[in-house]
Each structure stands twice: as structure tokens, then as C-alpha cells.
Design a protein around this nucleic acid. Structure first.
Length: 232
DNA sequence: GCGACAG
DNA sequence: ATCTTGTCGC
């Protein structure tokens, strides 16, 4: 089945966000079973990138959703939210810290989105429930996890050319791929977020990464969040 | 017990 | 994530 672009109202809540680390882990274990990878992206028109910046002085988080037209990859809009950081940084529990602000930002988006790139892992996570998977499940939209470094799993260094990649394996399971998006630069970690099979995630990641190490949606979101932090 | 550890 | 300038190289 294919996924149609849709806008954002207030999706039915899967769980509460005010949790202890222990409870958060329990939630992840139940959510992992709900991840599906049988969707397809047909003629995507709008692709989103999300990222969160942290303002040390105030302890606040700034989340930005950047909207890019596809295949032009031009910025078509964005939404930014600034709020108190709700959860400490705990490896493996990043979504409980960054999704509250990210979801707030999405509520300000009126445009239909077909695919979302997230700055963080999806299934390349100890419980296969990284922030990309959590967001996709919450919004019921296809998401792809893009990590700049490894959280878990073993892998061989991929080849030196753009497009070269290797498997990221964790507990005997293929949880993602280490992809060289540009010759001469460190590879990125691509993993299934929600909706699409890994092969499609690699394909779409390359489709929106024409020149730099990171996908354009992520780069725009990162830049916009950084600028929003300065405005303060 | 020890090392690892997205952003 | 953030703290931070210039600098080497394509």
C-alpha cells in the first residue's frame, strides 16, 4: 500500500511523555512491535527534515521542521518551536527529550508531508525504537533515521566512494547501513524509521544528498534551528 | 566489574 | 547537543 501525504492535527496519543527512564524503556519495548515497513513512497512532493538545537544558557530546546519540495530540494517552508527541555539526555532515550518539541513544531505545519528525515537513529537502536521510529509511529508517516555516529551495532568500514555501504548488525539483526554519501568523508548511519524497508531508506537518503555529507532536509533543519537559537 | 553510549 | 578561530585542502 502507498502512503498519501497528510497534514498534522493532533494524532491519538500512544503514551504519556512524563515518564521515568525505566518507564520510557518499557514504552519502547511495546512500541517496537508496531513498526511496519510495508509502505511505499509514490511521487513524493514534500519531504521534511527535523532537528533540535539546545540552548545551554536557558536549558531550552529549539525544534525545527524544514519542508523541502521534491525533487527540487528547495526550502518550501518551516516551523520552529522553543520550549523547556523535558527530559535529560540519556543514550537510548533521545526521543523522550526531543520529540515533545518536535511534535509541537509539526502541529504548526499545514502542508502535507510525504517523507520525514530525522537527525538520529531509527531501528539502529538497542531496542529498535530510536527517535526516527518513534516519530514515524506517532505521526503514522514514513521516516528515515540518519545518524552521524553509531549508537549500537558492528560494521565494517564501507568503501571510499559515494554510494558505498556496509551492514550495521546488532544482536545478529540487520538494523541499518553505514553509507558513504560523499567521497572522503565519514559515512552516515541510515536506518529504518517507520514505513519503508531499509533498501528504500538508502535509496531515498541518496536521492536527497546531492552534494554534502548529510541529506538536504537534515541540513536545512539543522541550520534553521541554529539560527532560531541565536534570535532568542 | 568494565567499557560503550544517537543528540 | 554545546564550548570555539583559524586553517589546511579540494
Amino acid at each position: 500500500m502507498k502512503s498519501g501525504g497528510k497534514s498534522f492535527g493532533k494524532p491519538p496519543e500512544l503514551h504519556d511523555w512524563d515518564l521515568t527512564p525505566r518507564e520510557a524503556i518499557a514504552v519502547q519495548r511495546t512500541l517496537r512491535e508496531q513498526i511496519r515497513t510495508d509502505l511505499q513512497i509514490v511521487n513524493p512532493r514534500m519531504i521534511a527534515g527535523v532537528d533540535v538545537a539546545y540552548d545551554k544558557p536557558t536549558g531550552q530546546s529549539i525544534a525545527t521542521v524544514a519542508l523541502l519540495e521534491y525533487p527540487e530540494l528547495r526550502l518550501a517552508g518551516s516551523a520552529t518551536v522553543r520550549m523547556e527541555t523535558p527530559f535529560p539526555y540519556v543514550p537510548g532515550l533521545l526521543s523522550f527529550r526531543e520529540l515533545p518539541p518536535i511534535l509541537q513544531a509539526f502541529q504548526k505545519i499545514e502542508t502535507a508531508v510525504d517523507l520525514i528525515f530525522v537527525d538520529g537513529h531509527g531501528q539502529a537502536h538497542p531496542r529498535q525504537m530510536g527517535i526516527a521510529s518513534h516519530l514515524g509511529l506517532w505521526l503514522r508517516l514514513p521516516t528515515i533515521g540518519i545518524g552521524k555516529s553509531r549508537l549500537c551495532g558492528a560494521y565494517e568500514e564501507p568503501g571510499p566512494a559515494k554510494g558505498d555501504c556496509s551492514d550495521l548488525v546488532y544482536q545478529n539483526r540487520l538494523v541499518g547501513r553505514v553509507l558513504r554519501t560523499r567521497t572522503g568523508v565519514r559515512p552516515i548511519f541510515v536506518s529504518v524509521g517507520y514505513g519503508l524497508p531499509l533498501e528504500d531508506c538508502i535509496r531515498w537518503a541518496l536521492a536527497v544528498t546531492p552534494r554534502y555529507r548529510l541529506p538536504e532536509p537534515i541540513r536545512f533543519a539543522d541550520r534553521l534551528a541554529g539560527e532560531a537559537k541565536k534570535v532568542k
